[in-house]
Simulated assay, not measured.
Amino acid sequence: MNEIEDDRPLPARDAPLRALWRGAVDGWAAPGALERLPAARRLLDAGADRDDLTLLARAVAYEAVFTTLEELDRARPAAGLHEDLLTADPSGRDGQDLWQ
């Protein structure tokens, strides 16, 4: 994980978005994360590429977080959190690696 450390103060809405990104999206890149799921462990044992599985898990996590934020935004129309989720990517790539 190539994380860009940024010491600038974050607007109030950025902190929870970054926490969601680190926990839900990038959490799948942590050592042993895939092995916690029996289905992923079986795929790895069958020869699946770890990087591809990690990318899949991260992309699915992103979609789940995005959809959740979108639904929350519908309940509070001015929030727009789902629109800013990609900017929470600490790598500075705005999630581009998820769609390669």
Rank of each mutant, 00 (worst) to 15 (best):
L55E: 05
L55A: 10
L85M: 07
T68W: 12
T54M: 13
L55N: 10
H82Y: 13
L69A: 02
L72M: 13
A75P: 01
D51K: 09
D73N: 07
A59Y: 02
A64T: 13
A59T: 09
L86Q: 06
A61T: 06
T68V: 02
E83L: 10
A78D: 13
L72K: 04
L81H: 14
L72T: 01
T87L: 15
D84I: 02
A88N: 07
R74Q: 08
G80R: 15
L55M: 02
L72I: 02
R58D: 09
P77R: 12
D84A: 15
L72C: 01
P90Y: 07
A75M: 11
A88G: 06
P77V: 06
A75W: 00
L85R: 08
E71A: 13
L85T: 03
L69E: 05
V65W: 02
R74S: 00
E71F: 05
G47W: 05
A48I: 05
T68M: 11
D73M: 07
R58I: 01
R58F: 01
A88K: 08
V65E: 07
G80K: 10
T68F: 13
L85C: 07
D52C: 06
E63K: 00
L72Y: 13
L55I: 01
P77K: 03
V65Y: 01
H82T: 03
G47C: 01
D84F: 02
E63I: 00
D73C: 04
R50H: 13
D89R: 09
A78S: 14
E63Q: 13
L86P: 01
R58K: 15
T68P: 03
D51R: 14
Y62M: 02
T87I: 03
P77C: 00
P90I: 00
L56S: 08
D73W: 12
A48M: 05
E63P: 00
T68R: 14
D84R: 14
A46V: 04
L72F: 12
A88H: 06
R74G: 07
D51I: 12
Y62H: 13
Y62I: 00
R74N: 00
E63V: 01
E63D: 14
A57G: 11
A61M: 06
V65S: 08
L53H: 09
L53C: 08
A78N: 13
A46Q: 15
D49W: 03
A61V: 06
V60S: 09
D52F: 03
A64V: 15
D89V: 05
A46M: 12
T54C: 10
T54Q: 12
A78L: 15
E63A: 10
T54Y: 04
D49F: 04
A46G: 15
R74M: 01
P90V: 04
E70F: 05
Y62A: 03
V60F: 00
A64E: 15
T54P: 03
D51W: 08
R76D: 14
D84V: 07
P90N: 02
L56W: 02
R76C: 01
A59D: 04
D52Q: 12
L69F: 08
A48Y: 10
P90M: 05
D51M: 12
L53P: 04
F66E: 15
A61H: 07
P77Q: 09
R74T: 00
R58G: 04
Y62W: 13
E71R: 11
L72W: 11
L85G: 09
E71K: 06
E70G: 00
T67V: 09
D51C: 01
D51E: 15
A64C: 14
D84E: 14
D89H: 07
G47I: 02
F66H: 15
A59G: 08
P90F: 01
